[in-house]
């Protein structure tokens, strides 16, 4: 269960905007945290509070396959991301590295910046405490839930390889 304040971004937020390629020569968590979303929300790394929730429009994370994008969001302190829809590679990457995400077109449309949310990713339930509304977002198929339960994809694969 995550509780936090909303930051809102629009449609088609691409991975270059989430973390620009000019910072990809240093994949350290500190470098990722420092420059996360800086071309969309100035000084995001300084204004965000740990646990805050990012709400986006359609096709969030489109573009490059860089895993640095969900990593930068995670290490900047964002607890989870809600979007109308996610770009394919970003969706996988978020699951693989353990960044909680929920797709919910209704929630993404109605939630406003600054709203207080309570989110249950496992059940896909989003409660907007400010507006007094609740939404049922998409839940993950059992196979993906196993990856999430393992913490990340490599823990899951390691267990599988070692079992052989």
């Amino acid at each position: 269960m995550y509780k936090g304040t909303v930051w809102k971004v629009g449609n088609d937020v691409d991975t270059d905007v989430i973390i620009a390629a000019r910072y990809l020569n240093d994949a350290s968590d500190e470098n990722m945290r420092k420059h996360c979303l800086e071309d969309a929300i100035p000084n995001f790394s300084q204004v965000i509070s740990a646990g805050d929730i990012l709400v986006a429009g359609k096709n969030f994370g489109c573009g490059s396959s860089r895993e640095h994008a969900p990593i930068s969001i995670k290490v900047s302190g964002v607890s989870c991301v809600i979007a109308e829809s996610f770009a394919r590679i970003f969706y996988r990457n978020a699951i693989n590295i353990g960044l909680p995400i929920i797709a919910s077109p209704e929630a993404a449309a109605e939630i406003q910046a600054g709203d207080e949310l309570e989110v249950d990713v496992e059940q896909g339930i989003i409660k907007n405490l400010t507006q007094g509304k609740a939404y049922q977002g998409e839940t993950f198929p059992p196979f993906i839930q196993e990856i999430i339960a393992a913490g990340n994809l490599l823990n899951y694969v390691k267990a599988k390889v070692e079992a052989k």
């Binding site: 396959s65 860089r66 895993e67 969900p70 990457n93 590295i97 490599l154 694969v157 390889v161």
Partner: peptide, 11 residues
């Protein structure tokens, strides 16, 4: 895909 998917496949 991302790096973690590729790591998993390399293994």
């Amino acid at each position: 895909m991302g790096s973690t998917d590729i790591a998993a496949a390399m293994i």
